[in-house]
Amino acid sequence: MALIPAPIILSKCPVKQDASPIILEIIVGNAQLNQGSFSVKRTISSPASIQGELRSGEPVIIGSGPELVGQRLSVLVTVATIQSVDTTLTFKLSGGTTNINITNSTQANAIGDVVVYEAYIRFTNS
């Protein structure tokens, strides 16, 4: 039984200046049980301006571009390997000037391990 680290997703997301919503979605594949959450903070010690849980395949609006500029999105997804040692996370962020769509796969050592996925995105002016 171990915690297996997956590669960390790091990116910047230039936003549009209109009020287009920024939409976050994760897809946890391989029919594995999981839990996901996100938070948006201005600084590392400030309280979250928005936070919540993430369910695989259910998009969440986290705010509009202008209100998110200068803030950082943190996403944590823990995937328990119940079917096989293979895990996959698809991370989607749309509504910015370019969409982010990243799929990462990580293999656990054994069934019962927990794979830890993290993503950190900074919203910037385009």
Binding site: I27, V28, G29, N30, A31, Q32, L33, N34, S56, G57, Q83, D86, T88, T90, T103, S105
Partner: peptide, 10 residues
């Protein structure tokens, strides 16, 4: 297509 199959789908 297993990368897209969630536990709820399963």
């Amino acid at each position: 297509g297993k990368k897209k199959i969630s536990f709820d789908d399963f």
